[in-house]
Computed example of a mutant assay.
Amino acid sequence: MGFDVETVRQQFPALSEGAAHFDGPGGSQTPQVVADAVAATMVAALANRGQLTAAERRADEIVVGARQAMADLLGTDPGGIVFGRSMTQLTYDFARTLAKDWAPGDEVIVTRLDHDANIRPWVQAAEAAGAAVRWLEFDPTTSELDDITPLLSDRTRLVAVTGASNLIGTRPDLQALASIVHDAGALVFVDGVHLTPHAPVDAGFADFYACSPYKFFGPHCGVLSAAPALLDRLHPDKLLPATDAVPERFEFGTLPYELLAGTTAAVDFIASLGGEASGSRRERLLTSLAALESYEDDLRADLENRLAAIDGITLHGHAQRRTPTLLFSVAGWEPRAVAAKLAESGVNAPGGSFYALEASRHLGLGDAGGVRAGLAPYTNQSDVDRLVEGIKTLTV
């Protein structure tokens, strides 16, 4: 089926400002329906969750609804959806909790491809427990992860891996990797922040899958999905009177109801991108995300080919499966200087390493990184043309 980008663009008020947004990997723009859901919740009567008053019931319905929405998006159990302030915060929380059962001699595997939010919490938790950290490398030329098998042992407790690199877009074969890791008796924690906005997701293969709604048109919060039975075996530090029920035992303090309402609206918005598709919300999400993935892949290929044809441009990242995310360097220009020049013409394509510090250094780009152009459902051909023309002015 086709993808109607112009209809999609009409739903994003921010686009009326005129910028061409290639900054989606750092946070997408917000559709009107999400803003409306947040605002409506803020002015409605709310209370702590319960069933006694209308305000209590409304709060409970928002939470339950958001868990179901995220479960539909990820293909998992709503009883295992945990909300937090951010993916980073949730990863730190779970790293500390899981590390309670680690001991000297245990091992944790992290990758050079990941955002630091799926590296440093595990490195620091391992250090505190006396466990060893092992590094899974990637090939700087192909951008593909190395074989994990040689790193695994009977002391491996957890492997943390990205669903897609936020720097160069590489999408590892997660199901194959998870199968190997599980055969070794270890857990898999997936950072799905950069993957979730761009492709259908079935996160049931992962023991933990974390993502961020503000990367897929929602509010700033974090989500983690795990099997309820696994969560039931984990015991985080918490306040004495706080519930021990799953998943609530992992959510500290009162949840931000307005952000959860916005998260549900964002999921429903994604489900609508497939037009008049019928079926359950999960089915509509899969249809919409498949159409979106095809559209973004075609646009990415066009942008990549046109950038590659410009003298002085070096493209980084050549994995077979990628998100619509390009990282490039311009000869004679620092990445942030390129971003500044593009911004003068209303093209938002930032420069840096974007917290993927290990990956940037491994690519030989150091801490400065490159210029990142990330496509989104609201990116159109005109945006691509503006970016290409802006780059050409720097290379003449």
Rank of each mutant, 00 (worst) to 15 (best):
T76D: 03
F269W: 14
A126T: 03
E304S: 10
W122R: 00
A265G: 13
E251Q: 14
G366L: 07
G317D: 07
V110Y: 00
C221W: 02
H316M: 11
A71S: 11
E17V: 13
A206E: 06
P13A: 01
A227D: 15
D311W: 12
G274K: 06
Y209S: 06
P324N: 10
F12T: 09
A176M: 12
S360K: 07
D77Y: 02
G317V: 05
W135S: 00
P200G: 01
A266C: 08
L151I: 08
E293R: 15
V82N: 01
Q175P: 13
T395W: 02
S278Q: 15
V190G: 03
T30C: 13
A40I: 04
D207F: 02
P335M: 12
E107Q: 13
V8A: 10
L326D: 07
V384L: 12
A271C: 06
Y209H: 09
E17S: 15
D23P: 04
V34N: 09
A339Y: 05
N348R: 14
S288R: 14
A54D: 14
A117C: 07
V33C: 13
T395H: 02
A54P: 01
E276L: 03
A277M: 08
D202L: 01
V63F: 05
A343D: 10
L289S: 11
K238L: 12
L394N: 06
Q381L: 04
E144S: 02
L145G: 02
N305K: 12
E276S: 11
S179H: 13
T91I: 05
G351E: 07
F208T: 11
V82E: 03
L113Q: 06
S382L: 01
G24A: 15
E276D: 15
R120E: 06
H362W: 15
T91L: 12
Y378M: 00
N166H: 14
